[in-house]
Amino acid sequence: MSAAGQAVLSAPAVEPRRSAAGLWSDAFYRLRRDRTSIVALAVLALIVLLALGADALATSFFHESFTHQDLLESYDPPSLAKPSLWLGTDEIGRSQIVRLLYGARVSLAVGAGAGLIDLTVGIAIGLSSGYFRGWWDDLMQFLISTLNSIPALFLLLFISVLFSPGPVTIVAVIGFLTWSGIALYVRGQTFSLREREFVTAARVVGADDLRVMVRHILPNVLPLVIVLAAIDVGQAILIESALSYLGLGIDPPTPSWGNMLQNATQDLTLGPWLVWGPGLAISVTVLCLYLAGDGIRDALDPRLRGTE
């Protein structure tokens, strides 16, 4: 006991840290000090708030509904004359800024919904097939290779014939198209992580398979998966526009950033400003998602912990 006792005495005095201990609370703590991520998250929150408040803003501030057409005002360039003209009007005189607000609803919902499916399905299948291997892994690999070898456009057409278009279908289809990337990444990481000694140590201690997967392997793959998911969300917003073009998307009067952009590219010579709104909105959203995902990844890595 003497050596151990001495070791305690000679150990430098350390203050107990914040009472909260654990990867997630520590990550949150670190994230709060990361200015870039905070700004990115704030911008995302602002976009979400604007989308949620689209009705109120349209009636009380812009005095314009997103379906209101006025052929006399078609292709009005952006002007400060009145709020509804800030981003100009499209080919049938609809206020571009109001449509952008409503479009945010669809695009954000599709992005978030597809991202969620992407993450949960991708992680669940990647983790389980990488951990258990055997016939389950073979089956999933077969499924993923099959899915990936069919051209996406063909698959989209096929699905659009099978299912009636609608927001839920769109989210499901996009999630279905994107999960394989995350699943493959998680599977590969799980292959290497399951052989690591800390996983063996967890099994020695008595952890069951579920605990090993969720508590030991997942926290080690999650950080990069978050970044991948953030990219996939941006992808989902763009796929939605392609789907709308194919007729599987949102029905035309309802705007989405995707179909607005699609629309604008056809009238580029008459109203080049029509690209700005949805283009900028998509870029800013994807950029902020990426920055926030990056920040979360760093926050989840204890080794990058800065000064405290």
Partner: peptide, 16 residues
Amino acid sequence: QMIFQDPYASLNPRMT
């Protein structure tokens, strides 16, 4: 129980 050879590999880097 077991004590492992490599004290770097046998502790999960993301756990306190």
